[in-house]
């Protein structure tokens, strides 16, 4: 049967074989032939037509009523043929979009690339994974002239292409800020102005910005409505939620961002995340922040990078390896 030639003749032969013997092999052949017909763009009405011709060749005495019935079937198939053509056009278009998206995703990766700085006495671990091709989460490290480290973490409302475009805007706005060391509150205030002017009314961005000074271990931070991170105090072994005030970027230009300060001591740890972590949904359940914290605790004995990866793997498994939202986790450990 493998040698079946995908021609009209073989359709006739198979049809005859089946009518004469009810051989299952003929049905198997029909299945193969229909696949090759689809590949060649042969429409359903053409197949019905072939069917009518084949029957007429085989039988001289076909009842008129039966033939008319088949003609009727042929007419009914015409719209299906059109639908098939439309489907094929859409498929081609989809492939085109897919390849464009692939290029765009590559560009975004290059554009948003950031190097994790090496800081004395501070380990930095990062995992950032997109749910779709383009990532709506953004993180960036900046090393200032005086050796201070800037850490930016942002999440654009929504996912996919619109979010990614918005992200690129943030990246450019950040790059155009003056070089001299600006505090987190000033940076957010500046970015807010840019975002507010340039986005759709329903679009907004949440962002956390921190500045770390290795010499004094001072950690300054401000938040624009971003999912609060956690601060682990090594001496008391307690987790503190990094509660902040500050409105999301893009709502109103008239807003200020308070600045907060901690001094990172030996044994302390900071966990920064996006809501792809805390809004993790499995089945009909939502993960509570307590559960997120439990997972973090389970892995906190590991070095920062390994810890971030292990925590990510845990949530990936929880969601059956299908992320619903972009996921970014940054761990700072001293």
């Amino acid at each position: 049967m493998d040698a079946i030639d995908i021609q009209e003749d073989s359709y006739k032969d198979l049809l005859k074989l089946y009518i004469d013997t009810e051989d299952e092999k003929a049905l198997y052949g029909a299945e193969k032939i229909s696949k090759s017909f689809i590949k060649q763009g042969i429409t359903p009405e053409e197949i019905v037509n072939l069917h009518i011709q084949s029957l007429q060749e085989m039988y001289d005495d076909m009842p008129q009523a039966y033939l008319r019935g088949l003609d009727f079937l042929l007419e009914t198939m015409i719209s299906y043929g059109l639908a098939l053509q439309e489907y094929q056009t859409l498929r081609e278009k989809q492939l085109e979009i897919k390849s464009e998206l692939k290029i765009a995703a590559g560009m975004q990766k290059t554009l948003l690339a950031t190097t994790v700085p090496v800081v004395e006495n501070l380990q930095i671990g990062v995992v950032s994974v997109a749910a779709h091709q383009m990532n709506g989460d953004y993180h960036h490290f900046i090393t200032g002239k005086n050796g201070d480290i800037g850490i930016a973490l942002a999440d654009v409302r929504g996912k996919g292409i619109p979010a990614a475009l918005c992200m690129s805007m943030i990246k450019y706005a950040m790059d155009s800020l003056p070089e001299d060391t600006m505090g987190p509150n000033k940076i957010l205030k500046n970015l807010n102005r840019v975002v507010e002017k340039n986005v759709d009314p329903s679009m907004f961005i949440t962002m956390f910005y921190a500045q770390y000074f290795p010499q004094t271990s001072k950690f300054l931070f401000s938040s624009a409505g971003h999912e609060p991170g956690f601060y682990y105090h090594g001496d008391t072994k307690n987790f503190e939620e990094l509660k902040t005030k500050g409105l999301v970027l893009g709502v109103t230009s008239e807003t200020d961002y308070p600045e907060y300060e901690r001094t990172i001591k030996e044994g302390d740890m900071i966990v920064l995340l996006t809501d792809g972590v805390t809004e993790c949904r499995y089945g009909d359940n939502f993960l509570s922040r307590e559960e997120v914290l439990e997972v973090i605790q389970q892995h906190m004995h590991l070095p920062a990078q390994e810890m971030a990866e292990k925590v990510y793997k845990h949530f990936e498994r929880l969601q059956n390896f299908h992320l619903r939202d972009d996921f970014t986790l940054i761990i700072l450990k001293k």
């Binding site: 409505g225 005030k245 409105l247």
Partner: peptide
């Protein structure tokens, strides 16, 4: 609360 919208 988190997003600061509660203030405005």
């Amino acid at each position: 609360e988190i997003t600061g919208l509660i203030e405005i």
